[in-house]
Design a binder for these strands. Structure first.
Length: 502
RNA sequence: GUCCCCUUCGUCUAGAGGCCUAGGACACCGGGUUUUCAUCCCGGCAACGGGGGUUCGAAACCCCCAGGGGACGCCA
């Protein structure tokens, strides 16, 4: 039997996500338990959203958690390159095969036509999908359009009737009618492949034997299987893991729960505890032990023990487990090392010190003044938000609008944060000192402190958002109705152009 | 709207037809240890979504319903 090979294939379009680490963990355990290999591939075919920065962050975060790989863009390996943006020629050669065999076709439809089509289908309560317009084009017409350099995509042909039946390792037989499957775009007009195409080609060329991925991919598995069939390749075994959930059971999202691995690092969780916690999402040790290392997990691993109900990511239990790790696994010396590394990161410290250097008279003033930099959520109460000019609702409004605006910042910079606060102040027609008041309480815990704008910048989006959200909760939270009103205000704010300074 | 997946305490879960009066853990509540607190120890609360089958026997197998979730992009 062929050597087991599994992979994690993150897309470098944002912060390193705990869901990525979760799937990586199970892939790695499965591979290692079978003395196989676990590889990392970067799926950066979305040119507009992928960044090198994000790729670096993801690799760093996975390494921090102890999830290392046998082959990958940084360590190399015999099946490279491991970055899809460097494999364009491979995809182009493969798409030609499908085109020649008539298993795929060129589509010249414009985005406008497709949008209109989707709208009308949705209005008529039909399942949205491509209508086969360009399927009717003759060979000559296609050649002519291509010669004229008209932009086009390549779509796959899909059987019109019958079912696609496949076996999921955890769920058994799954049957999906072909008529449910859209004529998926395989190659975009920028001549880069879509996920579905690149993923199948790479999984085959990289000799992946087991595809362990999130449940959200079940419905597109027929597309993938069809490609394997067209190429005459042996498909891997599929195994769809349950999705991590928010407390309200929806798919884990940063809007509702911190999802960035760096957030958990910044909050002072130990990587061993986080990875252990992820290991108990949908899985248990055969002997019921709850505290286990990644090595213990992989040696006792049994993928068939995965339970399928979507587990809620419950920070309270993570807190307990992290405390247990600190108490039981760190002696004083280890603790000193871990704490120093966490608290006294040189880059961070050298950003913080200039903010307080001129405000202290004794070095002993530093901790009282800057302690909030080395904290998680702050112990604030609604009384702290009492203000002579701002009502509690005003505070909530400012806090919520700030959260939303921070989330939409194209890049995290001090200037961006400042601009945003200035604009908000002008838009609300509240002086900047008042506008910043609730932010001071939420972010620094006090009405008087070092610059709150710098503080947010240094703390980062995740911790800032967590504190702002915590403050909103303290103030009674935002009801459905309030949220709706505030979203309307947000739209006005987005369209608001700051008056030019006189 | 269409399709797919899922369903045991509030949460993570054990459970492969009789071992289930459903077990463990977090959270919560009580008690003990501790100069306080935390830790630690002891105890308590709390669940098989509903309805039909199959079976001597169902949390487990089958069907229907309900609920939850996901997918339906030139995103991944």
């Amino acid at each position: 039997m062929a050597k087991v090979r599994t992979r994690i294939a993150p897309s470098p379009t944002g912060d390193p996500h705990v869901g990525t680490a979760y799937i990586a963990l199970f892939n790695r355990c499965f591979a290692r338990q079978h003395e196989g290999e676990f590889i990392l591939r970067i799926e950066d075919t979305d040119q507009t959203r992928s960044t090198a920065r994000s790729e670096q962050d993801i690799l760093k975060a996975l390494r921090w958690l102890g999830l290392d790989w046998h082959e990958g863009p940084d360590v190399g390996g015999p099946h490279g390159p491991y970055r899809q943006s460097q494999r364009s020629d491979i995809y182009r050669a493969h798409i030609e095969v499908l085109l020649e065999n008539g298993q795929a076709f060129c589509c010249f439809c414009t985005a406008e036509r497709l949008d209109a089509l989707r709208v009308s289908q949705t209005e008529n309560r039909q399942t949205p999908g491509y209508d086969g317009h360009c399927l009717l084009l003759s060979e000559q017409e296609v050649q002519k359009k291509r010669a004229e350099k008209q932009p086009y995509v390549v779509r796959m042909k899909v059987p019109e009737e019958g079912d696609c039946v496949f076996t999921d390792r955890l769920r058994g037989e799954i049957r999906i009618a072909w008529e449910q499957i859209d004529m998926q775009v395989l190659m975009k007009s920028d001549h880069l492949p879509t996920y579905h195409f690149a993923n199948v080609v790479d999984d085959h060329l990289m000799e992946i034997t087991h595809v362990i991925r999130g449940e959200e991919w079940i419905n597109s598995t027929p597309k993938h299987l069809l490609l394997y069939q067209h190429f005459g390749w042996q498909p891997p075994q599929f195994c769809h893991m349950p999705l991590l959930r928010n407390p309200d059971k929806s798919k884990l999202s940063k809007r509702k729960n911190p999802t960035s691995i760096s957030y958990y690092k910044d909050m002072g969780y130990l990587p061993e505890a986080l990875i252990n916690y992820l290991g108990m999402m949908g899985w248990t040790m055969p002997d019921g032990r709850e505290k286990f290392s990644i090595e213990e997990m992989q040696s006792a691993f049994d993928i068939d023990r995965v339970s399928l109900g979507g587990p809620v990511f419950d920070v309270e239990k993570l807190d307990w487990l992290n405390g247990k790790y600190i108490r039981e696994n760190l002696d004083v010396e280890d603790f000193v090392a871990a704490f120093s590394q966490w608290a006294f990161d040189p880059v961070r410290i050298s950003r913080i010190i200039p903010l307080l250097k001129d405000r202290v008279e004794r070095l002993s003033d530093v901790i009282p003044l800057a302690g909030f930099f080395l904290s998680g959520l702050l112990p604030v109460s609604d009384a702290d938000f009492k203000h002579k000019q701002l009502t509690s609702d005003d505070c909530k409004k400012i806090l919520q609008l700030t959260v939303w605006q921070l989330e939409q910042l194209p890049e995290w910079s001090r200037e961006g944060v400042e601009q945003l606060c200035q604009t908000l102040s002008q838009f609300l027609d509240i002086r900047i000192r008042e506008t910043l008041f609730p932010l001071f309480i939420a972010i620094t815990g006090k009405a008087v402190s070092t610059s709150v704008i710098d503080a947010m910048f240094i703390l980062g989006l995740d911790v800032s958002r967590a504190r702002l959200r915590h403050a909103i909760d303290i103030l009674g939270g935002v009801s459905k109705k309030e949220a709706k009103d505030l979203e309307r205000v947000l739209r006005e704010l987005e369209n608001y152009v700051r008056p030019v300074q006189a």
